[in-house]
Write a protein that binds this DNA or RNA. Structure first.
Length: 152
DNA sequence: GCCAACGTTGGC
DNA sequence: GCCAACGTTGGC
């Protein structure tokens, strides 16, 4: 089983929104970054666990856990001209973008802030620490356990 | 709201 | 296929 981190802007879609969704589940649409897509398409499997990270907000932080309940599927919004996620260069016979389905698992006892993660020498390789704009990234076993411990 | 970082686009 | 211009992300 693998671990991941998904960024989301809580104003647009928060951990609470996921918790309150039908079946506490949603299709994670709108990822339009090749590196993030490749992680979803090539590596994510049902049962993998995901940190939900709130970005572009007052206190950027890892706030909860979700799990992958369905591996990558074609993201239908790329074909919808009225969608913000429309991609005119993609076509149904050669789709460019995918998404996975995630389900709410739990809220962490305390948010683990970006500030705390940046200050922690045990977390070195996490893409979040680098000035990255990657919206989906892998998390190692060790980093996962450490961040969970930090939330206690 | 500013701005640095960085991915993408398109002209050549 | 290089690289400048542009757009977007996201912390502050």
């Amino acid at each position: 089983m693998a671990y991941w981190l998904f960024k989301t802007e809580p104003d647009a879609y928060s951990l609470t929104d996921l918790k309150n969704a039908p079946q506490q589940s949603t299709f994670w649409e709108g990822i339009r970054n090749y590196q993030a897509r490749n992680f979803m398409r090539d590596s994510m499997q049902e049962g993998d666990l995901v940190f939900i990270y709130h970005s572009s907000c007052k206190v950027p932080a890892v706030v909860g856990v979700a799990k992958i309940t369905q591996a990558a599927q074609v993201d239908p919004y790329q074909f919808d001209a009225s969608s913000h996620y429309y991609d005119p260069k993609s076509s149904p016979d050669k789709p460019r973008w995918v998404g996975v389905t995630v389900q709410y698992v739990e809220q962490l006892p305390n948010p683990v802030t970006l500030k705390a993660i940046k200050a922690d020498d045990n977390i070195v390789d996490l893409a979040l620490k680098k000035a990255g704009r990657l919206s989906i990234m892998p998390v190692t076993d060790r980093e996962w356990q450490h961040i969970v411990a930090m939330s206690q």
